[in-house]
Design a protein around this nucleic acid. Sequence first.
DNA 1: TTTTTCTTCAACCATTTGGTTTAATTATTG
DNA 2: CAATAATTAAACCAAATGGTTGAAGAAAAA
Lengths: 135, 135
Amino acid sequence: MVEEKHDALDIVFHALSDRTRRGMLARLCDGELSVGDLAAPYAMSFAGAAKHVKVLERAGLVRREVRGRTHLCRLDAARLAEAQAWLKHYERYWTRGLDSLETLLRAEDAKAAQNAAKKSSCPTPSRKQERNGDV
Amino acid sequence: MVEEKHDALDIVFHALSDRTRRGMLARLCDGELSVGDLAAPYAMSFAGAAKHVKVLERAGLVRREVRGRTHLCRLDAARLAEAQAWLKHYERYWTRGLDSLETLLRAEDAKAAQNAAKKSSCPTPSRKQERNGDV
DNA sequence: TTTTTCTTCAACCATTTGGTTTAATTATTG
DNA sequence: CAATAATTAAACCAAATGGTTGAAGAAAAA
């Protein structure tokens, strides 16, 4: 009878819905950081940033190890896996679209290849982008 | 100089951080639904549910087509793809863990197979779960 | 036209969020 | 010991969130 209003996914997605917190997670990829280290890059007050760390912690995305007077934080990606598992259900609803886009691009490539064939051959046009912008 | 405080990812993750909205997205997988249809299953007021639809719409997760007096909504998964692309960056931080888990389970399976070998052979133990609980 | 249906809009309320500042806590260092 | 460093805790604030109710609009049906 604990009247749970938010399930784990609510809390994880909420934690991810803030650019500051996503930035913290990104920096934790390179290894453990203290709360102070995590807070340093941001313009806000230390206490403000520490609150963000706490949100990440409550979402289970970071784990904290108190070591002397500093609190070391490290990424715990398990909950991210859960979030991605949820999203994966919807993969088919965008891959369909991407597939047709892919088809279109392939057709374009083929046409371009035909036109270019008079001059040279170009086996794999390599339409890979992987552009991301991060954080 | 528009002073954008929230980027697209903020808004998408926030939209996903509510069970009601995730439920709506799930139901939209089966096809278009009116706002009324979307609202029906929930205990809250119609206007309350309609607000959730609007949040999804502003996040770019649903698109609305006004048709007569009913507003048809349909899933637009492109933004979900962006969210998953972000999560994909972290895949390596949980697959490492899952790999060792996998190794452990494989070892268990192998042992079980050895024990069972005296009675019968079982080619693919099929440790696939895909359990999800959805929404 | 009148009524009903589907929907938005506006006002309101309680709670949460993201931020601040100041004070308190805890561990290290001089 | 006293001083400093790393952090939390508490009180506060403005804005956003998630919900309500009641009214209004526009399209369809009577």
